[in-house]
């Protein structure tokens, strides 16, 4: 049974010398020790696939990395309940025709996932130049809600407005959606950018993210999953957890660790270093998620 990580999958990864970290909201533990009820919700988060990016110095396998990840996921014994793509599905282009071509190609590749329960949201590379027009043509709405196994999921779009803003209209929608829920509902928010000021010097923030956090704060059980920064990051605003995912194509430096926010170059001694995807499984006590990070395995 696929539950965050199948034990055999895990052992296989270890056998291949891959580095896997399982994080239980602050507590690191061995994946092999995990025993999770079979009916538990499991979802995968894939982020920042940047389809159309083509710099071999950064990732010489720019056309193959996403396909490798999909092969890994399809090869798992059991499939997740759903797979969430948290934005920057495509790499930006000024040409609207090329943008749509990339969207179409990405949709086709993603369509090869065995799981057909795929949820999409845009990043600024997908939506920042046309307010999400092309993205909506190919992938549908940019903000929406859905429920799964007792968890309420809310997708918040903080990229279609190129000023890194959610905007008052969507904030009102978010507020109205939250008001429908009990204060102790299990709630997951998906965004592309961090809602909090992670590192505004690198544009790693949402201009009106504090307003969204104010809306979420009265609710006891809220976890935010986001992308954009191409690395894991775990942060708390009050009782709300914020978990950034690795990118699928290249890593970025830790916030403020270097003068410039530049893509980290490919390291042939450690191919696919810093890229991958994750699974999330609600903890059995009802609060927080067991996160399992999956590296990309060279076929």
């Amino acid at each position: 049974m696929f539950n965050g990580m199948d034990r055999r999958d895990f052992l296989k990864l270890i056998g291949l010398g891959a580095a896997v970290i399982v994080m239980e909201t602050g507590n690191f533990a061995s994946a092999a020790d995990k025993t999770i009820a079979q009916d538990t919700l499991t979802f995968l988060q894939l982020s920042d696939t940047h389809w159309g990016f083509s710099d071999p110095k950064i990732n010489p396998d720019f056309a193959g990395t996403l396909k490798k990840a999909i092969a890994q996921i399809n090869g798992m014994k059991s499939q997740p309940d759903f797979i969430m793509f948290t934005g920057d599905v495509t790499h930006t282009t000024d040409d609207p025709k090329e943008r749509r071509k990339r969207m179409g190609e990405a949709r086709e590749i993603i369509g090869s996932l065995k799981s057909k329960n795929i949820r999409m949201m845009p990043g600024e590379h997908d939506a920042g130049l046309d307010n999400g027009e092309a993205f909506q043509e190919y992938f549908g709405k940019t903000h929406y809600t859905f429920d799964y196994k007792g968890v309420h999921f809310i997708v918040v779009d903080n990229v279609s407005d190129p000023t890194s803003s959610i905007g008052d209209t969507q904030l009102q929608w978010l507020s109205a959606e939250m008001e429908k829920l009990d204060k102790d509902s299990r709630i997951v928010i998906f965004t592309h950018r961090p809602l909090f000021d992670l590192y505004p010097q690198w544009d790693w923030w949402t201009r009106d993210g504090a307003k969204a956090i104010d809306i979420l704060t009265p609710y006891k059980n809220v976890v935010v999953f986001y992308g954009h920064i191409h690395q894991e990051n775990h942060h708390m605003t009050g009782h709300i957890e914020h978990h950034a995912a690795r990118g699928m194509l290249f890593p970025l430096p830790a916030p403020g660790s270097v003068p410039k926010r530049v893509q980290l170059p490919w390291d042939s001694t450690q191919p696919y270093r810093g890229v991958g995807f994750r699974s999330a499984v609600p903890k059995t006590d009802g609060y927080g998620y067991v996160l399992t990070e999956f590296p990309i395995i060279k076929a």
Partner: peptide
């Protein structure tokens, strides 16, 4: 003090600083 463009403007946006 670093400054940057915070209105997404295309492929080189991340370098506009």
């Amino acid at each position: 003090y670093e400054f940057h463009c915070d209105v997404f403007c295309g492929g080189g946006h991340e370098d506009m600083s």
